[in-house]
């Protein structure tokens, strides 16, 4: 597990999460869980899928998993580990036929396209291979292109803001949001509930994501959720967990 605060930083394995966080508390404060394998030095699929299965055994929200999906077999292993959706990036341009096959096999609702974007010489560009290589498309064309492949959702991540906690880069991505005909998850930069609220008010944003560790400490997540609701953002209302444990 990696924290993306102030650059990628290794914080510990799964036991570390269990010891340092009340993961059940986190899992019952979110609408959806995203697990990304951001390992740059070769990804161990077996290890990763075991981690997923263990991490989500008591998670009862949709789970999206991504990082290194390059074949049907790879995707299948992730689905078999409990993923409801897979997140893809590099294959969108490197292997569009595979994307179409994934959509055909698992349905568009199970395939999320991740767009890592950044500004290069005043121009907005999408990147692949963990944000390393720019994709040679005009950004608007790229948005049209990936939607034609049949993906059901888009995960929009600002490379520049990711892990900073300074807020989403709405000034850059804002003008493009109306080009999406599929739901948009905004990611990269959220550091507090204000950021989450601001982005949620944008009609082009369907969901907001945070990977910022500060948001997971103590009651930060349940509190953010409450703040958002107080600001009039429609959030799902869930019954308290203890009610589940009571006999009917």
């Amino acid at each position: 597990m990696l924290s993306r605060n102030f650059r990628l930083q290794k914080v510990g394995n799964l036991d570390w999460i269990e010891n340092n966080y009340n993961f059940e508390n986190i899992a019952f404060s979110i609408d959806e869980l995203i697990i990304l394998n951001v390992n740059r030095n070769g990804r161990n699929l077996i290890e990763f899928s075991k981690t997923i299965a263990k991490l989500i055994s008591n998670v009862f929200v949709p789970v999206a998993v991504g990082g290194g999906v390059t074949s049907m077999e790879y995707a299948k292993t992730l689905f078999m580990s409990g993923a409801d959706k897979i997140i893809i990036n590099s294959i969108l341009t490197e292997n569009p036929y595979l994307v179409k096959e994934l959509v055909r096999e698992y349905g568009s609702q199970s395939v999320i396209a991740s767009i890592d974007y950044n500004i290069d010489k005043k121009e907005i560009l999408a990147y692949r291979n963990n944000g390393i290589n720019p994709i040679n498309y005009n950004f608007t064309d790229y948005i049209t292109y990936i939607q034609k492949l049949g993906v059901g959702e888009v995960y929009l991540n600002s490379i520049q803001k990711d892990g900073t906690g300074q807020g989403y880069s709405m000034d850059i991505i804002g003008p493009y949001l109306n080009l999406f005909k599929v739901p948009v998850i905004l990611a990269g930069g959220a550091g507090n509930s204000k950021h989450l609220i601001e982005a949620s008010h944008n009609p082009g944003v369907d969901a907001v994501a945070t990977a910022n560790l500060f948001n997971f400490i103590g009651q930060a997540l349940p509190n953010s959720r409450r703040d958002m609701q107080e600001e009039g953002i429609h959030m799902a209302n869930f019954l308290p967990l203890k009610k589940v444990k009571q006999p009917v």
């Binding site: 019952f28 009862f60 929200v61 949709p62 409801d84 799902a236 869930f238 019954l239 308290p240 967990l241 009610k243 589940v244 009917v248």
Partner: peptide, 19 residues
Amino acid sequence: FHPEKSQTNGLILLKNFLS
């Protein structure tokens, strides 16, 4: 909808079905 993906609300619904 997916009760198994709807947090506590879904868990209670499943429990109701099993009862």
